[in-house]
């Protein structure tokens, strides 16, 4: 039994949204530092489950995203334990704290913008890291990788296209994306969870964040099948249009480049194809986007 399980490891990549303009942070419903403490506890629990489990952490806000852990400049083993804590946990905690703080200081220099956080970019970094580990691992080893996004951002579609592209990449790579939303139903991320078979959870109360993390997100996707976990939410599959970034029920899709528009126009602005419209303003060449049923 041991031989079978020892070759199997689980990689958890946590993407933590540190954008200070999130409503939960602004309204002081939860402190960012508190949130970070909880995440550290959570990743340590993941490491504790099995000795060859791995974690990685990436922070992102509306302008930057950065790899936080593992840190190549700071290898484990340099730290000495202080209060009887397992050295690896101390190392994880110290590295994460230091790098998150550096990341925040870096954003301190620039103006804070109010946009969506860069989940697409962060997921890309995560996928690259996962891919590297997949290539480096020795033959016969099995690694289950997944991404957990923790955010309190709103429901807007600024990043729709880059995000969707990375989500589909994740699906191809067999990487599950889980989302723990601190406040809103985020359509974009719900779709991410749905296509990668992950769990989308909008927290009913912030005070028990750790409990939710441990209960819902700690088990591997393979284990989850055997557990009673929250059922998948019904996903709003409407896309965001290219032109105004708004959710649309009926859209117009360019037959050449597949760009989605909320209004019919005779010229596609993305590929500059000119449609021949037989009757004025009657959608003939433009197909109606079908609503995909959830």
């Amino acid at each position: 039994m041991n031989e079978d399980t020892d070759s199997e490891s689980s990689l958890l990549v946590v993407i933590f949204d540190t954008s200070l303009t999130q409503d939960v942070i602004i309204n002081e419903e939860i402190k960012l530092s508190e949130c970070l403490e909880i995440i550290i506890t959570f990743v340590n629990s993941h490491l504790m489950l099995k000795s060859n489990n791995k974690i990685a952490m990436i922070t992102c806000d509306s302008k930057n995203c950065q790899f936080i852990y593992p840190d190549s400049t700071n290898e484990p083993g340099q730290l000495r334990q202080t209060d009887g804590q397992y050295e690896l946990f101390t190392h994880v905690e110290k590295t994460i704290r230091k790098n998150v703080q550096q990341f925040l200081v870096k954003t301190l220099e620039g103006e804070i913008g109010h946009h969506d956080s860069l989940f697409g970019a962060a997921c890309s970094i995560a996928l690259c890291y996962i891919n590297r580990l997949e290539n480096e691992k020795s033959l016969g080893d099995k690694m289950n990788s997944r991404i957990l996004i923790i955010t309190g951002c709103g429901n807007s579609g600024d990043q729709y296209i880059p995000c969707m592209n990375t989500f589909f990449t994740a699906q191809k790579q067999n990487v599950t994306i889980d989302v723990c939303s601190l406040q809103n139903e985020i359509t974009l991320l719900q779709q991410a969870c749905d296509i990668t078979n992950g769990v989308f959870l909008k927290l009913p109360q912030l005070s028990s964040l750790l409990q939710y993390l441990l209960w819902v997100f700690l088990p591997d996707p393979t284990v989850r099948k055997k557990l009673v976990v929250p059922p998948p939410v019904s996903v709003d599959y409407r896309p965001f249009c290219f032109c105004h970034h708004e959710l649309i029920d009926i859209g117009f899709v360019c037959s050449v480049c597949l760009a989605i528009y909320c209004k019919l126009s005779p010229i596609c602005t993305t590929c500059e194809v000119v449609f021949k419209l037989k009757a004025p303003m009657k959608p003939i060449k433009v197909k109606k986007k079908k609503m995909i049923k959830s």
């Binding site: 200070l20 303009t21 942070i25 602004i26 402190k31 960012l32 530092s33 508190e34 970070l36 403490e37 909880i38 506890t41 704290r97 230091k98 998150v100 703080q101 925040l104 200081v105 954003t107 301190l108 103006e111 804070i112 109010h114 005070s207 028990s208 964040l209 750790l210 409990q211």
Partner: peptide, 29 residues
Amino acid sequence: ILHKANSMRDKVCYDILHYRKPPGTTYLT
């Protein structure tokens, strides 16, 4: 919002690096 976010930044940075758990602090009641 932006103003408030700006004003919070320093404190958050400080909190994260120098946060010392007082014994008995729990994140989950």
